[in-house]
Design a binder for these strands. Structure first.
Lengths: 195, 195
DNA sequence: GAATGTGATATATAATCCTATATCGACGTA
DNA sequence: TACGTCGATATAGGATTATATATCACATTC
């Protein structure tokens, strides 16, 4: 209906998905219903202010009013510390999905130097704080990897390409690693044992 | 009803009043009705997100989502550049009210060195950016001036006191004058001619 | 297949939001 | 003082819309 809230609502969805929380999980945290969240994200509905605040806070965001003149400065801070669309770290479901994909690829193409390079780069990138452009590239590479995994005739050359680009991305953001101490997972500790 | 939006809504009202815009004027700018704005400000109603955005933007504010960790840094910027409660500049109705008060005082007490000092200080202060404490002092002095104007037996000594304190405040914020070039009014250009 | 978890879809209820009117104070005039 | 007007905010009434309950379709895993 209205286009004014577009950006804010899009941001909510992005952060939710990036943090790997489902609409139901968010529903439990906020008290809103999953149906409601679905309609809000799908622009079928404009939330009330209180619903919006509730959603934001559950996603570790705080809605504030900023004088327009200061918007560039404030956005600068936010982008510098953690890109708004680049909240890759702390992902839970995404991590699992990534692990699944890697397993599949390894099954199909077998281990290789490229595969090892991909694993290493991803492990480091999971803990890095990426800028917007970098996060975009990261996601595109993950998509490529997923496509490769689902492909009928997986290609070793595209795997090599992905490996190169991921390593490049890793090097780009190597100086900007988050201090989060936890290893969280080892890219291998899935319950089943097909390694 | 909900307490979550308390702060944001209070901020809207503060900025509106500080900027000297009436609910009706804001209504024309936003497309919302004056009734609606009244209910929102009086907490009889929780606005929809789009209504909230509309109001904020009409008041030169932008609602954004900030990661909670960055809130202190962002608030730091905002407070440093322009206190949220200290948006005195660009006042219109407040200016008129001030002009009225000054005229009355001059009628009652007659022109004097103190009166001239007050006029001069106020003219400068209208264009200054004040910190929170300074803005508070400023408003208290205006209240004193208004009380003096309404008093049965106006006192020359309190006028002198106000003049001194206003000038002090003026000196305190002299280095921090906004670059707004327009004079806007001359503290004297009311339509009628009783000067 | 069953089971689980994902987001999306109807419908009743409760709320927002608008139209119109009321209240209150300040100001001017007779 | 009393009356009228003006500008401000606050208050009733119905149209429209958000929200909750319940259910749905779809994908993935066992």
């Amino acid at each position: 209906m209205t286009y004014k809230s577009e950006h804010l609502l899009a941001q909510l969805r992005e952060v939710r998905e990036a943090s790997g929380t489902s609409q139901r999980a968010l529903s439990e945290r906020t008290g809103l219903t999953q149906s409601h969240i679905s309609q809000i994200e799908g622009r079928k509905l404009e939330p009330g202010l209180s619903s919006f605040i509730e959603l934001a806070r559950a996603l570790d965001l705080e809605p504030i009013l900023v004088p327009k003149k200061l918007i560039p400065a404030v956005l600068g801070i936010i982008r510098a510390q953690a890109g708004p669309d680049a909240m890759i770290r702390d992902g839970r479901t995404i991590d699992k999905k990534l692990i699944r994909i890697l397993k599949r690829v390894r099954q199909k193409l077998g281990g290789s130097a490229d595969f090892d390079r991909i694993e290493g780069s991803l492990e480091l990138l999971q803990h890095a704080r990426l800028g917007v452009a970098e996060a975009d590239a990261y996601h595109r590479l993950l998509d490529n990897l997923e496509a490769l995994e689902k492909s009928d005739q997986p290609d070793g050359r595209t795997l090599h390409d992905i490996a190169i680009k991921l390593q490049h991305l890793r090097n780009m953001s190597a100086h900007n690693v988050s201090p989060s101490p936890r290893a969280a997972y080892a890219l291998d500790d899935e319950d089943d044992s097909d390694a």
